[in-house]
C-alpha cells in the first residue's frame, strides 16, 4: 500500500508535466521538448523569490506562476509562432534547441550545485489507514486534482476553452469564425508553462533544485502522455499516476536502477499493442 501511495505522489508530478505537454500538443500540434526546462526555470525563479527576496511560500508560488505565464507567452510570441506552419521535424528541433538554451542559461545564472528546496507544507507524516502520508504529499495530491478540475471546467464551459478546442481541430475554420488562432495558441503556451511550473515546484523538494531536475520527470511525463494517447487531458493525468505507481513497483520489487529501463519498455509495449494510447481516439496519430 505504501508503495502505491508514494507512486501516486510521483504520478501526480508526472501527470502535471504530461498535462502541459498534451495541452500544447493537442492545441498547437507541437511536441514541446522544452516543457521540463521551462518548468525548471520557473522553479528557480520561485526560489529566487523565496530565498533572495524572502517572500513566503504562497506569494513566491503565485509570483513564479505569473512569471511562468509571461515566460510561456514570450516563448510562443518570439520563437514558436514563427515555426507554427513549419514541418513537424523543424518544430521538434526548435523545441530541442530551446531545451538546451534554457538549460545552459539556467546553469550560467544559478550554477550547477543542487540546493535544497522547501516543501509546500511542513509537518510529520499522518497515518491514513495502513499508509503514511506527509502533509506535503497530500498537498501535491490535492493540487493535481484541483488543477485537473479547473482544466476540465475551462475546456468544457468557457469561451476560451471552446476556442482552444476548435483551434485544435481546424485552424482555417476557426479563423473563418473570427477566432484569433495565434492568440489562442499564445494562451495555450501560457497555461502549459504554468502547469509545468507547478510540476517543477512540486518536484524540487523531492529531487533538490538544480538544472537537471526535470530530465527524468520529462521522460516519465512523455511516457505518461503516450499511455494517455497524447491528446487526452484526463489520459495524461491517469497515465502519469499509472507510470508513478509502475515505477515505484519496479524500484521496490526489481531494483531502483531499472525503473527507467522498464518505463521505456512499457512505452514500447503500449505503442506496439495500442499505438493510439489507452485513451486516444482514432484521430490521434495525425503525423509523425
Amino acid at each position: 500500500m505504501q508503495i502505491l501511495m508514494s507512486g501516486l505522489i510521483f504520478g501526480c508530478i508526472y501527470g502535471l508535466t504530461a498535462l502541459g505537454l498534451v495541452l500544447i500538443y493537442k492545441t498547437t500540434d507541437i511536441v514541446n521538448f522544452a516543457q521540463g526546462e521551462m518548468a525548471m526555470v520557473t522553479t528557480f525563479v520561485s526560489f529566487v523569490f523565496l530565498s533572495n527576496f524572502g517572500f513566503g511560500y504562497i506569494p513566491s508560488l503565485l509570483l513564479a506562476l505569473i512569471f511562468a505565464a509571461i515566460f510561456g507567452i514570450a516563448i510562443h510570441q518570439i520563437v514558436m509562432k514563427r515555426v507554427q506552419s513549419a514541418p513537424p521535424l523543424n518544430q521538434i528541433v526548435v523545441t530541442l534547441g530551446l531545451f538546451m538554451i534554457l538549460n545552459g542559461m539556467a546553469g550560467l545564472i544559478w550554477g550547477h550545485k543542487p540546493t535544497s528546496y522547501p516543501q509546500a507544507v511542513k509537518g510529520d507524516s499522518i497515518k491514513l489507514g495502513s499508509v503514511f502520508i506527509t502533509p506535503n504529499e497530500l498537498f501535491i495530491l490535492c493540487i493535481t486534482f484541483f488543477l485537473m478540475l479547473i482544466f476540465f471546467l475551462l475546456f468544457r464551459f468557457t469561451r476560451v476553452g471552446l476556442a482552444m478546442r476548435a483551434s485544435a481541430q481546424d485552424i482555417k475554420a476557426s479563423q473563418l469564425m473570427g477566432i484569433k488562432v495565434t492568440s489562442v495558441f499564445t494562451a495555450t503556451w501560457a497555461v502549459g508553462a504554468i502547469l509545468g511550473g507547478v510540476a517543477g515546484i512540486m518536484t524540487a523538494p523531492i529531487t533538490f533544485l538544480d538544472t537537471q531536475m526535470m530530465f527524468e520527470v520529462l521522460i516519465m511525463a512523455f511516457a505518461a502522455a503516450v499511455i494517455g494517447g497524447f491528446v487526452s487531458l484526463p489520459g495524461a493525468v491517469i497515465g502519469g499516476l499509472f507510470i508513478g505507481v509502475f515505477e515505484n513497483l519496479i524500484a521496490f520489487y526489481i531494483s531502483p536502477e531499472m525503473k527507467l529501463v522498464y518505463t521505456f519498455l512499457l512505452i514500447i509495449l503500449v505503442l506496439y499493442i495500442r499505438p493510439q494510447g489507452i485513451f486516444g481516439g482514432k484521430q490521434t496519430l495525425k503525423k509523425v
Binding site: 469561451r159 471552446l162 476556442a163 478546442r165 476548435a166 481541430q169 481546424d170 475554420a173 476557426s174 469564425m177 473570427g178 477566432i179 484521430q283
Partner: peptide, 16 residues
C-alpha cells in the same frame, strides 16, 4: 469541428 457537438459548433459561429 468534428469533435464538438452540434450546439458547440453553433456557439463557435457566434464567437465574435
Amino acid at each position: 469541428f468534428p469533435l464538438l457537438t452540434v450546439e458547440e459548433n453553433l456557439k463557435i459561429g457566434a464567437y465574435q
